[in-house]
Amino acid sequence: MITMHDHDLDLVAAYAEGSATGAEAARAREWISSCDVCAQELDDQQLALASLADVGPVVLSDIERALLHRRVRESIAGEELATAPPARPAPRSGMWVKVLTGSAAAVLILVVGFGVVIPAFTGSDGGADFAAETAATIAAELAQAPSAELATNDDSSIASDAAGVSEMAPPPVQAFGDLTLEELTVMAAPIEMFDATDATVAAFEESPRDAPLPADRMAYSRALEEPLTCLDEGLGLLDGEVLWLGIATLDGQVIELYRSTPTLLALEAGTCTIVFPTE
């Protein structure tokens, strides 16, 4: 079939792949030693296969996986809403009373300076009213994601233009430039603490600037420009500057991260339940 001459180049390909049987391999070797076309074809096949052999399996990162799930979930939910009867439940107004009240309390209680964690609030209605079963089931799946992984800008030369950060719409990734690297590090550090024991919290309190964000946790991605649900859902109503930091996972939960001066807010992505500061 592939032959351009008398020899079966399928067999040459199989020999290059290593899938030829003993007898086939012997026959292929014989051809290759006496046939320039076969030898050239073998070289080509082996070069291509060797190049492709370096290609590892592709795996979604935690963040990409979360984004994929969210986008699918939201598209499905949107379609369901579009086809559903008009009287759908209103989105979580009760929860946002908790969010706003709790955040105000947190701001009062928190240590002034670079955000050290203390108390706050928890819980919500669990998002049961969020676009029906779709969100709930996929959120449950999201909760199975691996451990915390913070994604943020890897640009260390960050400017200090604060324009636009308090707008309702999430800022584009370039707006990460509104932070200094020091601020970013300090604000991200609490996420690190969730990976460790409470002892880490104490260490952080003693020396917040010694809690760097490991380089391997920092990955720029255009995907991070994806609008974040919780900002749309009401964080933008908070007094003061609210700056989107990114998305991460925490104890297997996908969370959204915001800076709400002077601390960090982390909300479970599916339900917008505040998971940091902790109670």
């Binding site: 079939m1 592939i2 399928d10 080509d44 070069l47 291509a48």
Partner: peptide, 18 residues
Amino acid sequence: GTVKSRVFRARKQLAEAL
């Protein structure tokens, strides 16, 4: 058979391009 042929020729073109 078509797949075999395409894969074979694709590898060949790939090698030449490299």
